[in-house]
Amino acid sequence: MIEAAMIWNEPNNKSHWDPEVDPGWERFAEMATLAGRAIREAHPTLPRVLGGISPIDPGFIRLLGAKGVLDQLDAVAVHGFPLDWNLWQIGEWPAKIAEIRAVTSHPVWVSEVGVSSFGAEEVQAWGLDRTAELLIGQAPRIHWYSLYDLPRAWEATTRHREAEGSSYYRHFYMGLLREDGSPKPSLERFARHAPAMGLCQWFHFEDHRLDEAVAWMRRLGVRYLRTGLSWADSFRPNALDWFDRQMQALAEFDVTVTFCFTPEHRGIAPHHTSAPLVPQEFAEFCAQMIRRYARPGVDAAGTAPVGAG
């Protein structure tokens, strides 16, 4: 059920990795290296991908390369939202990918790209078409974020929350579907670009949207999906039952599973962004999930861009 394993999410973004606990990314490098080795031992061919970086920073890739992290990876990934949060224009996407290609020989995935409908749903639809035009054929995987709007009763995974002003509320308008499940104009646009463009959809613990999401992805012709299995959630009651249900529901798709989120009681600081007290524990969680869900005999993905000749 897994085509690739992604180690963490946005490790150079303080909403996902606390730089006060780990200012030089020494602890992250140790954790990611151990996880990469553990995944390889659990599955000899499954691609291992660095969690998508945000911002897109070649210096961060060089830093991890100097620490030996890239030796335990098969691809790196980037995230970009130029119409919402980034200080660069959408037409710069090819140049941004080229910046990362210049500092690593690994394939460069786009594991999150999106446009919110916060300002106007027509802007999102235009941005989706433009993104597809710029990226299809340029990256082995392109995961559009996301299928669903984030429910307003939930919190966005960002450290600053409402202090971001209107930027915070854009997090709740990234979906092709509104919170109530009704389609936006961008949904039909997305269908034109599938399966070359995949989806990124995070499912919360016991997420009520799971089965409906699967039905929508079938209709849209989705082949590639990125989602997550939370290390923190693994300590909840009935966690494996939920993981089994989620992964069984997604079995027909080529799933990149992201392993992230430190359990509060296993972090140096009591927060999901903290470096763990014992990095080997994260590696063991990754290996356990791979043994449970990865298809045997998966070959390394990302050797040729989707849509390339």
Rank of each mutant, 00 (worst) to 15 (best):
A4F: 08
E10Q: 15
G24A: 14
R27D: 09
F28I: 01
A29K: 01
M31P: 03
T33F: 05
T33K: 08
A38D: 01
P44M: 14
G51H: 09
I53E: 04
S54K: 11
I56P: 03
G59Q: 03
R62S: 12
R62Q: 11
A66C: 14
K67N: 07
G68N: 06
Q72Y: 07
L73A: 02
L73N: 00
F81L: 10
F81R: 11
D84F: 00
W88L: 05
Q89R: 13
I97G: 08
I100M: 11
A102W: 00
T104S: 07
V108D: 05
E112F: 15
E121K: 07
G127Y: 03
D129C: 12
I136G: 07
G137D: 14
R141P: 03
Y145S: 08
W154M: 15
T158I: 02
R159Q: 11
E162A: 12
G165P: 14
Y169A: 03
R170E: 02
L177C: 10
E179S: 07
L187N: 01
E188H: 14
A191F: 01
A194L: 12
P195Q: 12
A213Q: 02
V214E: 07
A215M: 10
A215Y: 11
A215W: 14
R223A: 04
L225V: 13
L229D: 03
A232M: 15
S234R: 10
N238E: 14
N238I: 00
L240E: 15
W242L: 03
M247T: 09
M247N: 13
Q248G: 07
F253N: 00
V257T: 13
T258C: 09
F259W: 05
I268P: 01
A269Q: 09
P270F: 08
H271S: 11
E281W: 00
E281I: 00
F285W: 01
M289G: 06
A294Q: 04
P296N: 05
G302K: 04
P305I: 12
